[in-house]
Design a protein around this nucleic acid. Structure first.
Lengths: 347, 347
DNA sequence: TTGTAGGCGTTATCAC
DNA sequence: GTGATAACGCCTACAA
């Protein structure tokens, strides 16, 4: 069996050296309190002198748990997934869990393949971004009773649990705020909405507000772009071609919003005087650019931490107090959308 | 012996259903070519009808390999680690490997703890950021003969392999370029250099160039800051307090450089006329801000991909052609450091 | 508090 | 091309 070259030190070697049974060594490692001071010491010594590192693969097989969470994220590039994951990893690490990471590149089929692989590796829990999954992914997770948390979203029918906020509400509220501020021709830039309910719900919220507050409903005011600075700039150029009279742009991603702002700087367009800009996510960049950008701040790290806690609780057998945790969001008004007092006096 | 509730479908169940031995099922799954068409079909059917998902934990134990790479990165926040990891993950996934992720928060001790955990989980290879590790980390990796790659750096004495570029050279070359452009009082902003040889080597390169080209050696021109937009702005404020006459700032991170630029915009300081700014990394932001930032472009994704390839080769038993892969870097000159033609004519 | 026995689900080995 | 058998290294149950 196996490519054994020089056999590694195993638990029985340590046991022999310490003059105890393997079981005792195992116990000294997992529940030190139930082992006598004396034997604990002998074992510690034996471990130190051999440099023994337990084989978790064997432990996992035997105990039927891996202390591992599998996380599927869309991408690490220009992505707030990094922040969610950071919060997640922090809580997990404290609990002695490890993180297995897979990126789906926004494809539910890729996601499914990763989930299958995670199940094969018997992860104790799974973390998915969003609520767009294949039917088989849902089926697999449910029938295998794998603790699962969906993040950045609050699905009507979660697979198991969710940690997020209402993307619809956030899209609606930001648009309403812009309407109340007096903007009438509010363009919307989302990233691709296909297979991405976070984006499409923000769009839905925008549309409801547009109708409700009598904003310009011209479909040319809406476009889908990549999540990048560059595509924000290009989108602005295009918008100005078809509707040079827009007075505000709402981007459902701060990176795109910043790209729009930079293009305005390049063209000498005054923000917010000529065009107001609003972003989404509450990234550092939104508050550091000039002028700072109005945005929707979402508690990214907390969402990740909460997701981890829910997973850990469920793994420990405690049902979550709420299967859907709404961590909320906050509209942050900054200079990029504030109507100047003197604006009306302009010629 | 496991919390068995309803026993999962196992390889023996599939075997029984297909009327073959477990061994044959295993073979059909790993080396289909050596199984007859006919039995392969029967097995496929049995798998489909049972929804069997192999238990990789058991497979790992038996075969003594996990098809897993453990990656230790400093942080996911404002970090190019995300780009390295992205390239890494792409290659790994194609080869059927999974990624176990741990963040050290820039602490070698944390890194060591994560490495121990990775070894316990019997990862097939390990990926470390940088070359600052504890003695025990090096010892552990070497004595256990674990394929290891250090990234973003080219250590004199790599643990095993490395994929990166010369940080010293890059720091030197950028400073030289600024000197040649005519700047004389060139400030340097690094992030914390303790336990971070990437940063300290860039600093060393800067110092050599400062001496060589007779730039102002005032130590007040150097500061260490956090990798954030905000701290870039704050650092500029401080620099202007102590040395209002600086004519260029070299930041060993584009995020910090952008933070400096935004602060200049806030203060009405003309870039590059009054102060030139150079960054490092070649992030998107460097080419999208106004004016675009001169920077050191490093092939982030390629470094990650190369690291994965080296690891995979070594795991397959092929020694690498070169243990240290230098992927190079490129000085990208942009408007933020270009001396205006008319500058000398100013009053 | 400690030890014994058996099994976790797969793959490697060696026959057939 | 296929099957029987023995590991892989640990943990759980139960006994002492």
């Amino acid at each position: 069996m196996s490519n054994r070259k020089t056999r590694r030190i195993g638990i029985r070697d340590v046991a022999r050296l310490a003059g105890v049974a393997p079981t005792t060594v195992s116990r000294a490692l997992t529940l030190p309190s139930i082992v006598s001071e004396e034997t604990r010491l002998k074992i510690a010594e034996a471990i130190a002198s051999t440099g023994y590192i337990p084989n978790r693969v064997a432990a996992n097989l035997s105990s039927n748990q891996t202390k591992t969470i599998g996380a599927v994220i869309p991408t690490l590039r220009n992505s707030i997934a990094a922040d969610f994951t950071e919060g997640m990893a922090e809580v997990l690490r404290r609990a002695g869990f490890q993180l297995l990471l897979g990126s789906s590149e926004f494809s539910p089929e890729e996601e499914e393949a990763i989930v299958v692989e995670f199940i094969a590796r018997r992860v104790d829990g799974i973390y998915l971004t969003g609520s767009m999954h294949t039917a088989r992914t849902r089926e697999l997770l449910r029938s295998n009773r794998i603790p699962t948390v969906e993040i950045a979203t609050l699905p009507d029918d979660p697979i198991d649990m969710a940690s997020g906020f209402s993307n619809f509400e956030a899209g609606y509220r930001m648009t309403r705020m812009l309407a109340e501020e007096g903007y009438r021709r509010v363009a919307l830039l989302t990233t691709f909405t296909r297979d991405n309910e976070r984006q499409s719900e923000r769009l839905a919220g925008y549309r409801v507000a547009v109708a409700e507050f009598g904003l310009d409903p011209d479909p040319r005011l809406f476009a889908e772009v990549e999540m990048s600075l560059k595509s924000g700039g290009e989108a602005l150029a295009h918008l100005l071609d078809v509707r040079p009279d827009i007075d505000a742009i709402f981007c459902t991603g701060d990176i795109v919003a910043a790209g729009v702002l930079f293009e305005c700087q390049r063209r000498g367009i005054d923000v917010p005087r000529q065009i107001a800009i609003a972003g989404f996510e509450g990234l550092d960049i939104s508050e550091n650019v000039v002028p700072p950008l109005t945005t929707v701040r979402i508690p990214r790290k907390q969402i990740g931490m909460k997701a981890a806690e829910m997973l850990l609780d469920r793994i420990a057998g405690k049902p979550p107090s709420q299967p859907k945790m709404d961590l909320g969001f906050e509209i942050v008004r900054r200079a990029s959308t504030i109507r100047m007092a003197g604006a009306a006096e302009d010629p």
